[in-house]
């Protein structure tokens, strides 16, 4: 229905449209006026540290939470007034694989299929199809509690796809997975997008957003602080990054002082590595080495590189992206 309407309308409807989304829990403002646009068939990466409001935003869009204010439509339907219809068109998978561990893989999928209104036979057929696709055929008859972390995520993702929803919400789909399972899941997500699905993905991993997302919205303290393609965001940081690994982390302060003059922005220091944005390429390394040498700072390695999303996040927020909950709380307290 929705897809048909999308095709006939002159202007392609947005798959997800968020305007002025606000949500507070008591005194804590989780979302403070968020706007998002996701055209059909694209991936929006919602990028931010823990506690930035990513999960709250997903829960509102997936009809699990009522917004305090704002207009939110998914697949052309209002998530508050038409919540039931929205639920027919979305799939939700997340960092907590929401599967019943005592049921087998197949039983999990059949249960979800029947709760979407399918007959037992139809739900079973679809379950087998998904198990095949997610490489879980061998484990289909085993209780899910015997599954590895990667298998659980795949089953969880399969459960989200039971009703072939046009819009998919993936809340930190690879958090806590080993690198191999992570790569596998990325490939799977890319396939899903290739089928024309719209995906909203939250992540605190910049490489994940860089690889999967067409557009990235950087969210911090409940606000979208930047939005654009990965390349656009990198351009915002401007120029190349000069990365210096020091012989001794104890000289970081000296190195920061020595390098301050070659950049418009203050150098960033993490452990024994100092990073600084530079305006031009030619002669930069020579100049940096000379200045460090004058300051008596020992250097192990020095290189110029293209900016990553880490740099984007740093220059936008003033703190690193992959900070932990604890780190954030400590920062807020001090």
């Amino acid at each position: 229905m929705t897809q048909a309407r999308t095709h006939v309308s002159a202007e392609p409807e947005l798959a997800i449209r968020v305007r002025g989304l606000r949500k507070s829990f008591g005194d804590v403002v989780a979302l403070d006026g968020v706007d998002l646009d996701v055209p059909p068939g694209t991936v929006l990466g919602l990028l931010g540290p823990n506690g930035a409001g990513k999960t709250t935003a997903v829960r509102v869009m997936a009809t699990l939470l009522r917004p305090d204010a704002g207009e939110i439509s998914v697949a052309g339907l209002d998530v508050v007034r038409e919540a039931a219809a929205v639920r027919e068109r979305i799939g939700l998978a997340g960092q907590y694989a929401a599967i019943d561990e005592n049921l087998t893989g197949l039983e999990n999928l059949v249960m979800v299929g029947r709760l979407y209104g399918a007959s037992r036979a139809a739900a079973t057929a679809r379950g087998h199809e998904l198990l095949q696709r997610f490489d879980l055929v061998d484990a289909a008859g085993r209780p899910a509690k015997t599954y590895s972390g990667g298998m659980r995520r795949r089953l969880d993702l399969a459960a989200a796809l039971v009703a072939k929803p046009p819009v998919l919400f993936l809340d930190e789909p690879t958090t806590g997975l080993d690198p191999r399972s992570r790569l596998d899941l990325w490939t799977t997500i890319e396939e899903l997008v290739g089928e024309g699905r719209t995906v909203l993905l939250t992540t605190q991993y910049l490489d994940e957003a860089d690889r999967l997302a067409d557009t990235i919205a950087v969210i911090d303290h409940g606000r979208v602080i930047a939005q654009g393609t990965p390349d656009e965001l990198k351009d915002r940081v401007g120029g190349e990054r000069l990365e210096v690994r020091l012989s001794s982390a104890g000289q970081a302060a000296d190195a920061v002082r020595a390098l301050a003059a070659i950049s418009d922005e203050p150098p960033h220091c993490e452990g024994d590595t100092v990073t600084v944005g530079v305006r031009r390429r030619n002669g930069m390394i020579v100049e940096a080495v000379r200045r460090l040498d004058d300051a008596g700072v020992g250097v192990d390695d020095i290189a110029l590189r293209r900016p990553t999303l880490d740099d984007v996040f740093l220059s936008l927020t003033g703190h690193a992206a992959e900070s932990t909950d604890d780190g954030d709380e400590q920062k807020e307290r001090t």
Binding site: R87, L92, G94, Y96, A98, D100, L115, A159
Partner: peptide, 17 residues
């Protein structure tokens, strides 16, 4: 705590079921 209630609530099933 395992997130299953979230899954159920995201499905177009009867609310009280």
């Amino acid at each position: 705590s395992k997130g299953l209630i979230d899954r159920f609530r995201s499905l177009p099933m009867a609310r009280a079921a």
